[in-house]
Write a protein that binds this DNA or RNA. Structure first.
Length: 425
RNA sequence: GGUGGGGUGGCUGAGCGGUUGAAAGCGGCAGUCUUGAAAACUGUUGUGGGGACUUCUCCCCACCGUGAGUUCAAAUCUCACCCCCACCGCCA
């Protein structure tokens, strides 16, 4: 959420942000609404001040056992007017609020302006493996090795669910442990294991609601949502709280399953592990002081890329243009790992700075040590990294001519030292 | 799921229709004392919004789980909802 006062004072910046994001919102209407709300408010406050004064007088008269009937009668009339204005104010507030919740964050000045085609590759690491045979896709490989059962997952749950089996399941578990260990032991994050179901306030705090409700799995009877990412429960840890300045920065990491309806996305990238309704992810979340948030973003990217480097996966770092930026983010780097079988770069991580956008929605502050006043923190998060696609990249890049898959060295300690997965097991 | 108790400021906890934004204690901050610290004492200490003045500040409004209602007047009364605690039942 943007600061209303900021919008009022800088409508041009907001207009430009919307234009760069290729969105149309009626900012004029918003400003008009804001203006009329403030008119109502000042009239109302004047009346309420009068009422408070009259109240004291009535109280004094009654205490002195004098007659207060006149005053009480005129108060009754004033109260009626106040009621009316309060209703008007409530209406204006509701309109203003829902409008504010629908305005996306302002893109950072350093990112390219335009649609997805303006995505900029900043750097890359490693080089795609070369084979003296035609490399198979992760779908073929996992079928042959018997480590993913797509058909039965569909029988059990529906299309675009996956079922890992045997060494596939163990590989998944090894990856989770490997990533959590790296972030906790080497990068200084504290591990969190949060709830996978969250309430409406939490989903609103991080910006999934109200705009993207149809993309979320929702339990109607309880009004709870399956988390689309650990970002939601972990960022909301400090919702409605004021932290001490010396407690910042806070670094959290969490493994969770992630649930996405992917409504309307059928047909694109839906084969195999590319786009599934449930996947595992290790996420990193930071709460930092505003002045440091862009340095923290760079460090976040390094923490995420180290996962890929240790796994020996070639990757590239892209900065997303304004038109591709998620609703809540000011700036976002995507990490793409190369998968040799399908010959594509797969997005396995997004690292974003939300500045105060989520903090304002979720009301997360810290107390400035000098001024003693609360200020909004900046929040960031990044995948470190998403598993399904990473598994696809590992299978495809580490495949051998005989159809087996070599296990990246960094994972072997998590798999009893096993060096390769073969169709025999 | 059943029964009972309860949600007040950073925390503990009073208040249960009329200067109560809210006693008291703890904590925090500043000062006195001290070589320094502790102790003691003194002062100060919620959040959000609007306005005046525009960088010292002042004024006004709202907020006692949430929402509706009763009343001239609600933290205080009524109703609904949410949440928490205890015990019982069920259960991984």
């Amino acid at each position: 959420m943007l600061d209303l006062k900021f919008i009022r004072e800088n409508p041009d910046i907001v207009r430009k942000a919307l234009k760069d994001r290729a969105l149309k919102l009626d900012i004029e209407g918003l400003l008009k609404l804001d203006d009329s709300r403030r008119k109502i408010l000042s009239e109302l406050e004047e009346l309420r001040a009068g009422k408070n004064k009259a109240n004291e007088e009535i109280s004094a008269l009654l205490k002195a056992k004098s007659d207060a009937a006149d005053k009480i009668a005129s108060m009754k009339e004033a109260s009626g007017k106040i009621d009316m204005l309060e209703n008007e104010l409530k209406e204006a507030d509701a309109g203003l609020n829902s409008f504010l919740l629908s305005i996306p964050n302002i893109p950072h000045s350093s990112i390219p302006i335009g649609d997805a085609s303006r995505k900029e590759i900043l750097r890359s690491w490693g080089k795609p493996p070369e084979f003296d045979f035609k490399p198979a896709t992760h779908i073929e490989l996992s079928q042959r090795l018997g480590i993913i059962d797509f058909a039965r997952a569909t029988k059990i749950s529906g299309s675009n669910f996956i079922l890992f089996k045997g060494w596939g399941a163990r590989l998944e578990r090894a990856l989770i442990n490997f990533m959590l260990d790296l972030h906790t032991e080497k990068h200084g994050y504290t591990e969190i294991f949060p709830p996978f179901l969250v309430n409406r306030s939490s989903m609103t705090g991080t910006g999934q609601l109200p705009k993207m409700e149809e993309d979320m799995y929702r339990l109607k009877d309880d009004d709870l949502f399956l988390i689309p990412t650990a970002e939601v429960p972990v960022t909301n840890i400090f919702r409605d709280e004021i932290l001490n300045e010396e407690d910042l920065p806070v670094y959290y990491t969490a493994y969770t399953a992630c649930f996405r309806r992917e409504a309307g996305s059928y047909g694109k990238d839906t084969r195999g592990l590319m786009r599934v309704h449930q996947f595992d992810k290790v996420e990193m979340v930071k709460f930092v002081k505003p002045a440091t948030s862009y340095d923290e973003l760079e460090k976040l990217v390094v923490d995420a890329t180290e996962v890929l480097e240790l796994l020996g996966l070639p990757y590239r770092v892209a900065v997303l243009p304004t038109g591709d930026l998620s609703f809540s983010a000011s700036k976002c780097y995507d990490l793409e790992a190369y998968a040799a079988g399908i010959g594509q770069w797969l997005e396995v991580s997004s690292c974003s700075n939300f500045e105060s956008f989520q903090a304002r929605r979720a009301n997360i502050k810290f107390r400035n040590k000098v001024t003693r006043k609360p200020e909004f923190v900046h929040t960031l998060n990044g995948s470190g990294v998403a598993l399904a696609r990473t598994v696809a990249a590992i299978l495809e890049n580490y495949q051998q001519k005989d159809g087996s898959v070599v296990i990246p060295e960094a994972l072997r300690p998590y798999l009893n030292g096993k060096e390769r997965i073969t169709s025999e097991g």
